[in-house]
Design a protein around this nucleic acid. Structure first.
Lengths: 247, 247
DNA sequence: CGGGGCGCTTGATCCAGGTCAACGGGTTCC
DNA sequence: GGAACCCGTTGACCTGGATCAAGCGCCCCG
């Protein structure tokens, strides 16, 4: 890396929003970039946006212009049918990208709502395409992010199409646990940011069923639930439930 | 477009596999390219591959090296759980791309099987990344293809998570009808390439339920079924069924 | 600090779709 | 061309999760 650094005036705001200073860079879009490449992608982030709990980041039908990387907070995305029925398609946490669904039609195709006070980085999509033509690593990683979203969706399809209620909830908890772990939080103890109804919508179950299965898990000593506070006591048991050998 | 054409020796085989000669170019990856750009992407297609009905194009776990564009034929993709349960994640027809799920992990994450004798174009993935850095239109379109796959998956999640059996089958038939139409076939009359069991797996239903709902549709005069031959009599009725709650 | 409402739990009952079983027609492969 | 098998249909019955209903507790807001 023998590039000669070019000194340019840098605003404080630019520094504040820079990917190179971000604690999530190993989780987010800049994964695997050299310091040199990192400097170039710093220019990607236009602005930051903060959202109060319950606020929409975007809604279905709005023009798509930018992706959003979650810096802090927690989101849900939902699609809806004309008759009012809706379905949660995912829960997103820090370091994850929102808005990939909008690229295809240049319009958002789902709603994204903050489930707690949150902050996101705005990544203008046109800039991302331009920069990813120049920085191969970025291009490659962006494709991977898109592809992994497809694989994740296949997992949800599997879950919705061929698992029973207990298995779905077990898979859901194990998934949350793993994602919290990779963010440095406890694998076994966390607060759910979403309601039973939202969990049910995501898993194709009614809220009563979610509640009942949680209670059953608790009776069996697999987890301890108190409202939104979850403590997983027996992770291997949960993994075993979803047909995975407990590692 | 004032590029000076460069004459190069072109093998017959190259000509045969060229995108620019392909009847599907308006449906497949080269959508919207100028003749100039089209000439460049002709080099993308490495080879063609033919598959007998029942043959696997790839299997889960195999290293991912190339995408596959379907030239003729019909495929299904399935994911499977350790315990043997599997789930059909999609049915693909001519002009559609197979293998997008493999980019993220550099391994295939599902099985792709030909449901009739088929032919695919092999698109080495490394070449596609390289070329899409040079041809913006290709890059942009490829991103759209990835994004649309995500949106399609959201649709399936909606279907699996909040629709009843009749609605799922109606949505399935309408979707097939539209895709056949855009390929120049009849919107109302076609052969199903998949079994009742495969349809059921895709829709999260058992094969008996699929059969029963088809029979019910037939009794109501909405469709005419005879084994794999389907004739849709009342498309508006099917569309009306989608997104309507009985109560 | 007290009231109201939302979110959660739990019980009773119902029903869509699953399961089991029998059969018949079509396709495929010797 | 015939046998075996897969595939599809249909009936009878069962059940997991939905629906309906009631009550409770936590949290927010005034």
């Amino acid at each position: 890396m023998s590039a000669i650094p070019v000194l340019r005036p840098v605003s404080l705001d630019r520094l504040r929003t820079a990917c190179s200073n971000c604690g999530l860079k190993e989780l987010c879009l800049p994964v695997g970039l050299t310091p040199d490449e990192m400097a170039r992608i710093d220019s990607l982030i236009g602005t930051r946006r903060t959202l109060k709990k319950g606020a929409h980041l975007y809604r279905s039908g709005e023009p798509f212009e930018a992706l959003h990387a979650i810096r802090t907070g927690f989101f849900k995305t939902t699609v809806l049918l004309e008759d009012g029925r809706d379905q949660v398609t995912g829960f997103q946490m820090s370091g994850e990208l929102l808005g990939l669904d909008g690229i295809g039609s240049e319009k958002h195709t789902c709603d994204a709502m903050a489930l707690e006070d949150s902050e996101v980085c705005v990544i203008p999509y046109a800039s991302l395409e331009t920069l990813s033509r120049e920085v191969h690593t970025l291009q490659h990683h962006f494709h991977k992010v898109l592809s992994r979203e497809i694989v994740r969706d296949h997992g949800v399809m599997m879950l919705l199409g061929s698992m029973r209620a207990e298995e779905r909830l077990a898979a859901f908890l194990v998934n949350l646990s793993q994602r919290f772990t990779s963010r440095g939080y406890s694998p076994s103890e966390f607060y759910l940011r979403m309601t039973r109804e939202e969990i049910g919508s995501y898993l194709g179950l009614k809220l009563e069923t979610v509640s009942r299965v949680f209670s059953r898990f608790q009776d069996e000593g697999t987890i301890a639930v108190q409202q939104k506070h979850i403590r997983i006591i027996d992770i291997p048991r949960l993994k075993q439930l979803i047909g995975q050998r407990p590692c």
